[in-house]
Design a protein around this nucleic acid. Sequence first.
DNA 1: CTGTTAGCGCCTTCAT
DNA 2: ATGAAGGCGCTAACAG
Lengths: 333, 333
Amino acid sequence: MDRVTMEDVAEEAGVSINTVSRALNDKPDINPQTKKEILQIAEELNYQPNRFAKGLRSSKTSTLGVIVADILNPFFSALLKGIEKSAREDGYSIIVQDTDEKYENEQSAIQTALAEQVDGLLISPVQTNDQTIMDLRNSDLPFVLLGRHFDDLETHYVVTDDVKGAKTAVNHLIEKGHERIALINGPSHISSSKERLRGYRQAMKNHGLSINESFILEDNVMIEHGYETAKNLLAKTPSPTAVLCYSDFVALGVIKAARDEGLKISDDLAVVGYDDIFFATCLEVPLTTVRIPKKKMGKKAFKTLKTLIGHEENVTELQKIKLETELVSRQST
Amino acid sequence: MDRVTMEDVAEEAGVSINTVSRALNDKPDINPQTKKEILQIAEELNYQPNRFAKGLRSSKTSTLGVIVADILNPFFSALLKGIEKSAREDGYSIIVQDTDEKYENEQSAIQTALAEQVDGLLISPVQTNDQTIMDLRNSDLPFVLLGRHFDDLETHYVVTDDVKGAKTAVNHLIEKGHERIALINGPSHISSSKERLRGYRQAMKNHGLSINESFILEDNVMIEHGYETAKNLLAKTPSPTAVLCYSDFVALGVIKAARDEGLKISDDLAVVGYDDIFFATCLEVPLTTVRIPKKKMGKKAFKTLKTLIGHEENVTELQKIKLETELVSRQST
DNA sequence: CTGTTAGCGCCTTCAT
DNA sequence: ATGAAGGCGCTAACAG
């Protein structure tokens, strides 16, 4: 049994293919009555539009590309979940690609997305190089950056307010009486690292605290835990009494290192994570962390992209969206 | 600047569209020299085949559907990562859908996949009902079950040997001297739960240990931690001295509950997880767990599906693949 | 309001 | 070894 086409429906309804098309696509110029009949018949026959014919004709595919840096990272999984859900609700399919934080993969992923003729693209860029994104801007494919953005490259993006997020976290630590506060940050080429560093510096400065530059360390995102880095940090004299981490994963590593040193979390070393992923609550000492509204962010990114797709070539105003984070205070501080 | 088509290439090369098609698709009946020239020109012009035209003609899409129960679950993320990688290497794109372990979502996801005209489907079924999968079997879309399978429904699948996995874990606990061993299992409609229960029973029986049926509990997969369940379990008298958990997440909940009770992990309560997800090593007491080769499983599932797609309508032999797990012994036992 | 016509870009006969 | 013609299923333009 072959797939049902518009022709089948047309025949059954005794009208032309075109009329069927009008009915199915909510076009004007059709008798409500015929329309109703056609829809009915299409339903009975279980008509499913052929995406490829449609895509070929209209060059609209109802498919979006999503390029994330690492699906295994719960932060991105959660974004993906939000994106998938809202896209699906809106009739879009998503094609997912994973770059493993490697620039060359980003390049080929974007190439692939272009070849796939997606209607739009959501990307969390690797940021070791901005060439691909620049190229992309020169193509006419609408895209929105996800969670990361460039200082010197104007694009649409949906991120969180990382300056503020880090600032709030540091303020919290200062309120708790800490002065020797360290930062184990992500790679400095990533915008969120840069901004969190800014937030950290601002908060310290605002409270008149001097910054020990050796307390500012950088870690790899992919390795996802700051164990070694924290080891180094804790070996310093004087050692910090509090650490703000780039992610909850990094915080895990820090906690492990602290345990090795016989330090008690909170009492001897306060730890603040970032992201608020599931297991933050499950630790021996539940983790204080900066919560990112991940699913919401995914949804928002989709909505934003959809707006762009709607307006097409139009000079749409640049969408620069910063969502708020929330400090979730638990027992690690 | 419009997209480059075969026509453009043909014009540039001074040949017919058809010849270009022959060159680009490695068809016979073409002069090696002209072929070479055409490929050269296609390259220069950066020709990209139009998937939709291609799909329309050949009804092959180079796209696979992947339907997982919960992207947020690191087990599925890891599968996805393996699938994405191997699919990409082979020129396939993947369209991802998430069912949130809900049967109605599975139904619509499969409908969607059908409408999307993917070449094949990878599914981790919800298993509260097998109707969708039965329907799918009656369509001619090749599909492979992922991580879960049905007893009474013959399909291709790639899973792990859950009977053996659980048995090995229980054996390990018995070797350590435990006799009151509990099982906090997943929902009983999921095949892996059923099989792990079988493995548990077999291991206990083989060692002549009697099973306290009240030590066998069932938990929700989505909630992803067995905290409440473990609370109940630990309140029993006599209480178990060891627990095998359905996942590392469940194990986390158990550990938390044990902490509440003032029980020391390993000494007072031995805990074995399942999956071996990242943070299993990062816990205060690193978790002994049954490692599932997740990425490998993803790759294997893709390969299997690809075989089916190759052979098309053919009565291909049923692929029932069970991968081995590995008990990773850490400090929680 | 409805039908006819003409492709979208590609691949598959069938000629040459 | 190459080209011409036709059509996959659909939508958009133009007639009526």
